[in-house]
Design a protein around this nucleic acid. Sequence first.
DNA 1: TCGAAACATGTAGTGTTATAACCTCTATGA
DNA 2: TCATAGAGGTTATAACACTACATGTTTCGA
Lengths: 168, 168
Amino acid sequence: MVHAPALQHRLPADSARFQTSPASDSGRRTLAEAEALCRARGVRLTPIRRRVFEMLLGSPKPLGAYDLADALASQGRRMAPITVYRALDFLIEQGLAHRLASRNAYIASTGSRETPAFLVCDGCGEATEITCQEVAATVRRVLSAQGYKPLARALEITGRCVHCQDVH
Amino acid sequence: MVHAPALQHRLPADSARFQTSPASDSGRRTLAEAEALCRARGVRLTPIRRRVFEMLLGSPKPLGAYDLADALASQGRRMAPITVYRALDFLIEQGLAHRLASRNAYIASTGSRETPAFLVCDGCGEATEITCQEVAATVRRVLSAQGYKPLARALEITGRCVHCQDVH
DNA sequence: TCGAAACATGTAGTGTTATAACCTCTATGA
DNA sequence: TCATAGAGGTTATAACACTACATGTTTCGA
């Protein structure tokens, strides 16, 4: 489960146009932001919710609900699955986490209300959140062309990351 | 479970730029195509696989594996879950179906090897396959900008369809 | 045409993810 | 101080997916 932080640095061509948010180097900041955000909204970032959020922040890859339960068990009393799910529901509602349906796993997010996109590696499972006008605009346009109203759900784009391209 | 076929006709503005493929009105044609495609590839569209594929083709919304088992039970002997999953695996390998992870459900597809996109309604669950150069290009660009190699996985875009916008 | 190999399906059991139903505790404010 | 709302505890179960192994079926070459 231990994993070196993603090497986000040596990237091709036009990566400058994307804002990426690897969880690993923004933990502290994001935790403070989350607290501020919850205060502002009048909702409670309780100890359980906070621990789940920290766990997600600290992980370079999305975690399953039962992974979270295991991990949290090692730092205290075991938590029932439903408890984890309730915390996750809260975090998702507040935009602090997203469910990656393609992996049945959960990942910390920025709390912004915009539709985020995640690049998910088919090999190692690591996921990178990107905020990209182009993606957002394309999604909006495609939806409205079919008469759909957009929802702020995470967009999952599957591929194979730099480190996993040769393998398998 | 019975559901009127989607009204795909009165659509906003620039829908002409998208090729949509509602399952309901292309069943016959697509079944023949699937047969041809399997023959050409030297793989076998066995009775079980064919029935599962027909079931998917006939449904306006994605079906769960156990839905399929139930539906197929009503037209003969009950099928074990694993049998359904095996048929689905085959169809997915051949590009004749896709798994919609956000719904734990499966949907018939065209068999083309390109990355398709599905608009999935958060309300009724109906899904529309679209083939759109713009979407494909955006996905490719975003992936390569982060050093990812594209995979031909279905892209799921969630929204609320025309009929479900007022409800809930 | 016989038999080996490859592929497809049957059977039983289990693993994994997610939720239902109901109860208790605690903080808050009228 | 007591009613209330929200958070969390407990137990059980639903829903989805797969492993392992046995049995059939098709195909193809000797």
